[in-house]
Computed example of a mutant assay.
Amino acid sequence: MDSEGNLHNKGTMRLATAADEILPLKDPRVKSNPAYLTVILLSRVITKLGSLENINPALIENLFASDLAYLQDLYARINENAANEIQAVCPECGHKFELEGLEPGE
């Protein structure tokens, strides 16, 4: 919800890059409070949130706790688990399906 009371419940989050996860570690706010890493990470990877044009740490700071938890979970699902899911196509019939990838070392 923005400062005018408008609810923004549709958005876009992109996959994180190495820079998205590394560069915030240099931020003084993260150095003084490691929990702030989530705020900066989300502000970097959320590319759209309703009609809001500027996604920044201040906006993420003002999310409801439940919304922040939802976005943290979404971030984890698309960035940490995505490597374990493989889109596959049967070479005989063309049926598309997902395969669970192997864990490192398997």
Results as ranks from 00 to 15, higher is better:
residue 91 P to N: 02
residue 40 I to D: 01
residue 54 N to P: 00
residue 47 T to C: 15
residue 84 N to W: 10
residue 57 P to S: 07
residue 65 A to V: 14
residue 50 G to D: 06
residue 100 E to R: 11
residue 67 D to C: 11
residue 46 I to V: 15
residue 51 S to Y: 11
residue 36 Y to G: 01
residue 36 Y to D: 06
residue 38 T to D: 06
residue 102 L to Q: 10
residue 38 T to V: 09
residue 106 E to W: 05
residue 32 S to T: 06
residue 7 L to P: 06
residue 72 Q to D: 07
residue 102 L to V: 11
residue 105 G to A: 09
residue 100 E to K: 15
residue 34 P to V: 01
residue 2 D to F: 04
residue 81 N to T: 09
residue 41 L to P: 01
residue 79 N to G: 05
residue 93 C to Y: 07
residue 86 I to D: 06
residue 26 K to V: 10
residue 106 E to A: 10
residue 4 E to Q: 15
residue 48 K to M: 15
residue 67 D to Y: 00
residue 89 V to Y: 05
residue 81 N to K: 15
residue 82 A to Y: 09
residue 73 D to W: 11
residue 23 L to E: 15
residue 84 N to S: 14
residue 53 E to I: 12
residue 71 L to G: 00
residue 95 H to L: 14
residue 42 L to T: 06
residue 43 S to D: 08
residue 21 E to V: 07
residue 37 L to E: 00
residue 35 A to S: 13
residue 64 F to K: 15
residue 103 E to A: 13
residue 28 P to A: 13
residue 14 R to C: 03
residue 3 S to W: 05
residue 100 E to T: 11
residue 102 L to F: 07
residue 84 N to K: 13
residue 6 N to I: 14
residue 98 E to W: 12
residue 70 Y to P: 04
residue 75 Y to R: 03
residue 86 I to V: 13
residue 65 A to D: 08
residue 5 G to V: 03
residue 17 T to D: 12
residue 103 E to Q: 12
residue 77 R to F: 08
residue 40 I to C: 03
residue 75 Y to H: 08
residue 65 A to H: 13
residue 78 I to F: 04
residue 42 L to C: 00
residue 67 D to H: 13
residue 23 L to A: 14
residue 104 P to V: 03
residue 45 V to T: 10
residue 11 G to N: 02
residue 51 S to W: 05
residue 28 P to C: 00
residue 99 L to E: 07
residue 24 P to Q: 02
residue 82 A to N: 07
residue 106 E to M: 02
residue 64 F to Y: 15
residue 100 E to L: 07
residue 65 A to C: 04
residue 91 P to M: 11
residue 83 A to M: 04
residue 21 E to Q: 11
residue 25 L to Y: 10
residue 106 E to D: 06
residue 3 S to Y: 10
residue 86 I to H: 12
residue 105 G to C: 04
residue 5 G to H: 07
residue 57 P to M: 05
residue 78 I to T: 08
residue 78 I to Y: 02
residue 51 S to T: 15
residue 11 G to A: 00
residue 56 N to I: 07
residue 80 E to R: 13
residue 26 K to G: 08
residue 60 I to N: 01
residue 35 A to Q: 08
residue 27 D to G: 04
residue 39 V to D: 00
residue 20 D to C: 01
residue 94 G to W: 07
